[in-house]
Design a protein around this nucleic acid. Sequence first.
DNA 1: CCATAATCGAGACGGTACGTCGGGTCTTGTA
DNA 2: TACAAGACCCGACGTACCGTCTCGATTATGG
Lengths: 201, 201, 201, 201
Amino acid sequence: MSNPDPTRRNESSRRAVLTATLDLLQEVPYTRLSIEGIATRAGVGKQTIYRWWPSKAAVLFDAFLILSEADAGEPPELPDTGDLRADLMLVLRATAAELDSPQLAEPMRALATEVAHDAGLARSYHERLDAPLREAKRRRLRSAQATGELAADLDLDVAVDIIWGPVLNRWLQRGGPLDEAYLEALLDTALKGMQPRRHEL
Amino acid sequence: MSNPDPTRRNESSRRAVLTATLDLLQEVPYTRLSIEGIATRAGVGKQTIYRWWPSKAAVLFDAFLILSEADAGEPPELPDTGDLRADLMLVLRATAAELDSPQLAEPMRALATEVAHDAGLARSYHERLDAPLREAKRRRLRSAQATGELAADLDLDVAVDIIWGPVLNRWLQRGGPLDEAYLEALLDTALKGMQPRRHEL
Amino acid sequence: MSNPDPTRRNESSRRAVLTATLDLLQEVPYTRLSIEGIATRAGVGKQTIYRWWPSKAAVLFDAFLILSEADAGEPPELPDTGDLRADLMLVLRATAAELDSPQLAEPMRALATEVAHDAGLARSYHERLDAPLREAKRRRLRSAQATGELAADLDLDVAVDIIWGPVLNRWLQRGGPLDEAYLEALLDTALKGMQPRRHEL
Amino acid sequence: MSNPDPTRRNESSRRAVLTATLDLLQEVPYTRLSIEGIATRAGVGKQTIYRWWPSKAAVLFDAFLILSEADAGEPPELPDTGDLRADLMLVLRATAAELDSPQLAEPMRALATEVAHDAGLARSYHERLDAPLREAKRRRLRSAQATGELAADLDLDVAVDIIWGPVLNRWLQRGGPLDEAYLEALLDTALKGMQPRRHEL
DNA sequence: CCATAATCGAGACGGTACGTCGGGTCTTGTA
DNA sequence: TACAAGACCCGACGTACCGTCTCGATTATGG
């Protein structure tokens, strides 16, 4: 039961594998992405990949971590101008743009579908990638509660799901375009359900 | 380049392929499901599969059609007791149970992830499988509009997304359990956003 | 326990594999010869080789059969001029030349060493390749018995071993050159031991 | 390009490698014997093997030297009772037993086949392992010449080949059993060819 | 009522990739 | 400096499936 010793790991090989993975996903769909192809592109032995990652999905996940770490250091933050609806529209528009971008669309679909099939990966995903974002979203909603824009007794996790769930589901299932009109209509109805009751005002 | 003549198609081979597909998905995850395996289990030549289906995902899709056709004839219908929230809870509980069931979980995840990667399959999915269900959902909401439970100007497609999007997203991304508490909290907030304005009452 | 059906075997693939094997042995030593290399050179899938041959050695053996079948039809025959010693010198010289030839040396060493390690292959070797030659040798010695050149009670198998064993052993173990002088000295002593006793003359 | 300094060599590692090699050959065929396996079994780093031996065959060869050194000090000697044929039968029987023994058969086949493929190893083999034995054989035959059992003008190297060549060849090529009858028949014919001519008596 | 053409099962074929083994080199820390 | 340990790049292993391609042997009309 002896796993490899992480202190002896070759950092440059690790980076080469992860960037090769992201590079290749610009050229081929995730289904056609092979460990063999990654190893060749990275100039690395296949065994080096198998030694450090349990699956192709795990490599993909680590590649995403690199992308996230680019803007790491400070935790992610949603804009807070005092106008919740405007701030959220900004964020949703940006998200829609990312989900549509040629650079990110394929890797993101790949990650999302792998998470759906692999419970272990799902745990990592929620702990390392999703948690900071979700926390930032909750923070922004909490701030809106403080200003009275949102009900004080609102379940913030449910609120996040109600705003982002429809967007992600529509995107992943190709249920329709994430255009301005859709996002507006979605926010209108979603936020209305989160407003404080009249007598609270 | 003449396509095969559908009138000559062997119906029993077709059924054998589709039931073999569903059977195998009780034993192995979708990733491990192979055309070769299906052919063997179905007692069918590989060529017969390649002749009639363009991909493994297409076979899966047709297998789902069989499941749906079981209760076909009449279109699907949501319960309508006059109490929208109670009716929806019933439906969501049933959905949650299906998504958790050992028989359906794996095929459903498989279909969902294939739809995410294959635009053509996505179109078929929305036209043949999703459309009738979504229409039934819209119908129930429209009925609620008629009784004044829901706002008259509500965009029903957005409404459906707000109710079911969070559920499907939470399920597919393994974001947490679809338990009673979650469904209640979700429906509370979602439906509140859909109520008619005070002066409309 | 279902072996592949030989009647469906693709003869041109078979030939391609065997000739590729012989070709490659002109370029690389047997140790460096890989199934993968043979398949590539032959323009054949690896599986096709694994389907029909149990080992690399078996491929080599079949390649040898092709070489032998070149002069097949009639069984091999040693020269019979009436002068046994002269006839044998001719044959041994030819054998020595073959064992030294760049075309045959490597494949022959390879076959000889594989036979040493693989009892099953050894059986095939003796039945299919060695037996006809050994029979021809025995025939020539029997003819010499008839003319009184060799003792009537000579064990012909032992006789063949005494003549060819030293040659093959010296060659395979690189014990020294198979030159004229050696062959002469060998034949002198070996044949002397096979002569009829004086009173038999 | 400085070779390692032999004076710094760790003798216990060397022994460990060689005994591990012989041990492993009791468990796996030579083909399956790997440098990595030897290193692990010997509790030695792979580099230590690559530092001191040029090839797996060289390790095997050194392992054989250890076996020979067991009875070293005095040079090997064939029995000399005055009855050449009886003495040789004794030796051949012993040899046949060794070639059949489970401990020695696999290493010996391995060495013989490696010698066939590696000219450098062949030189070492003949100089260090074969030469003393062959000299002992020649010594015994020379003694027989002195007593008049063998012809005075007999080429002793050819004589050794004629006696042992058939045996080794039959063994290595699995041409048949080295049983009593075979050895008797072989010696009969071989020695008859080496007797002095009548008028020499 | 048969002929003929397509589908069917079976499975060989050229390929691609899998995940593993081992070769030989290099690096790291210890003696 | 040699050593144990073991990561590294690489080539090959033997296997699993891919999608295509013959093969007879059933069908299943339509002349």
